[in-house]
């Protein structure tokens, strides 16, 4: 079984081809380049390096969010199009879980997060070794999350490139309870994405058309409209 994995949920980019659990080629990149420019050429590169053709793959895995709206849409659009036109199933995995799997061997609590601006984060919390979800992916305030984490009275490993922005605040609430992953484990890897996707049941091909990113937030205009509309209905 040959997998193509695509991860563009945030600034870093990763693409991999994995055959029967073995990584044939993987690119992990953390440069300022835009995914729209680099993602397809990077996919082309992993195919070239593995001497494989697009038709050779059996399934596609993509990071489905949360993350940067544009980043997610680029990865998902490419994954959807390849999957649909090559008639291969598409599996979406939480981008926070992909990151957590970098430290899955850690025997404790794992918290992954992305900056969502205005002291908010996209975050999820997992229990190590099996990555059991303790707090599901969500958008919320960092402060609330840290208060929740404090209750666990266990060591918590923070993972992700954005964690350094919140290090002081994390330490001020959690003190010694907080541990931080080394920088090399802060980048999402498409090979880990594929590992997680392999554990999921393969969706039918019909599911591809309706596949969309999990933004975990309404567009601002949509949220405002709903608010106004609900008021209207009540009044």
């Amino acid at each position: 079984m040959i997998w193509l994995g695509i991860e563009t949920s945030n600034a870093p980019l990763s693409v991999a081809i994995v055959r029967d659990g073995e990584v044939l080629s993987e690119i992990v990149q953390n440069t300022k380049s835009t995914h729209s420019v680099t993602c397809m050429p990077t996919i082309e590169e992993v195919f070239r390096k593995t001497n494989l053709k697009p038709v050779d793959i059996d399934a596609v895995a993509v990071s489905e969010g949360p993350g940067s709206y544009t980043g997610l849409r680029i990865g998902v659009t490419i994954a959807k199009t390849l999957s649909w036109t090559l008639k291969k199933p598409l599996v979406g995995i939480s981008s926070l879980k992909v990151l957590a799997s970098n430290v899955e061997l850690f025997d404790g609590i794992i918290c992954t997060m992305f900056d969502a601006r205005r002291k908010n984060v996209y975050a999820a919390v997992y229990k190590g070794k099996e990555l059991k979800t303790i707090i599901p992916e969500h958008h919320g305030s960092l402060e609330e999350l840290l208060q929740q984490l404090k209750e666990y009275q266990e060591t918590i490993m923070f993972v992700g490139s954005d964690v350094k922005k919140f290090k002081e605040e994390i330490q001020s609430v959690l003190g010694e309870q907080a541990k931080f992953a080394p920088p090399s484990l802060n980048l999402p890897r498409a090979s880990k994405l594929i590992e997680l996707a392999e554990k999921e049941p393969l969706p039918t091909l019909e599911m591809v058309h309706s596949f969309v990113p999990k933004y975990h937030r309404l567009a601002e205009a949509e949220a405002n409209w709903l608010k106004a509309h609900q008021k209207e209905q009540k009044g």
């Binding site: 729209s36 397809m40 697009p54 038709v55 849409r73 680029i74 659009t77 390849l82 036109t85």
Partner: peptide, 16 residues
């Protein structure tokens, strides 16, 4: 943001 959807779909289709 709208252009990027068509462009990336077109590139993926062309590559495939």
């Amino acid at each position: 943001g709208a252009l990027l959807i068509g462009i990336n779909a077109a590139k993926a289709f062309a590559f495939a």
